[in-house]
Amino acid sequence: MVGLLFIGLGRIITARVQRRIGPPFYQQFIDVIKLLARESIWHHWIMTLGSIMALGGLIATMVHVPVAGWLPYDSGGPIFLILYLATIGYLGMAMGVSASGNPNAPLGIGRALSLMLGYEIPFAAILILFISLTGSSSLTEIAAMQAGGFLSWNIVKFPLAFIAAEITVQAMMAEKPFDQMIAPSEIASGPLVELGGKFLGLGMIQMAVAIYFETAIMVNLFFGGGANIFTFTLKQFGVYTIAILINSVMPRYKIENAVRYLWTVPLALIIIQMLIVFLR
């Protein structure tokens, strides 16, 4: 739900950047409810299965990300599990839209997966940096390591890693310049091409959930988690605002250029950061 609010606020921010007023902040909720209440067209039950699997996987991922140090059970925010649970969400989405039979959909998914190949590697490098520093693959502990004021946050300690992570997360959220997968004017919004009604509604919820846990991961990695849920959410919104601001002024990469960019700039940044950390 917070994710939906974020998207709504994000739309206002984009509008303000483009010197418009923008929709009300609750617009995204209206859209989702409208879509859920609408007749929807499907081609095969695999579409249903895919949509449900996607949302299920993403919700499960969200549950594993610690929010202000809080988790429903003591899993400690296992980062590998989070990455791979998110993948089942993406697989579900991909499977569902493939079953719609429109070639634009697998085209978009192919781009999304290629992009995934691009951003997973710098992201893995960032995670490995923190895992090597804390000796734990738990997000809770990585967040706890940064306790004690602004100056012990990782964003201050490792600014290069933060820039790399910001670029990576931009690609993860499929915001511009990495929105090849949904490029509406090229491939008719790619995976979403055949989704109408509640399929699209579930798709928007999926997007919201994904944005929520991606920003939450970022906050845990770089902004020291949060004392309580409000500061945590505020930090999340800060991360999302950066992404949205970049999004609203950027054009779009070609997919191979995007992957090449992700394998050079962020990876080089993170390697420099690693060298600085390990040689010091």
Binding site: L36, E39, S40, S51, M53, G56, G197, K198
Partner: peptide
């Protein structure tokens, strides 16, 4: 998570093949 998603899916409006 899948149950929640399925609940959202099947409680909302009807579909058409």
């Amino acid at each position: 998570g899948v149950v929640i998603a399925a609940a959202i899916f099947f409680l909302s409006a009807k579909t058409h093949k």
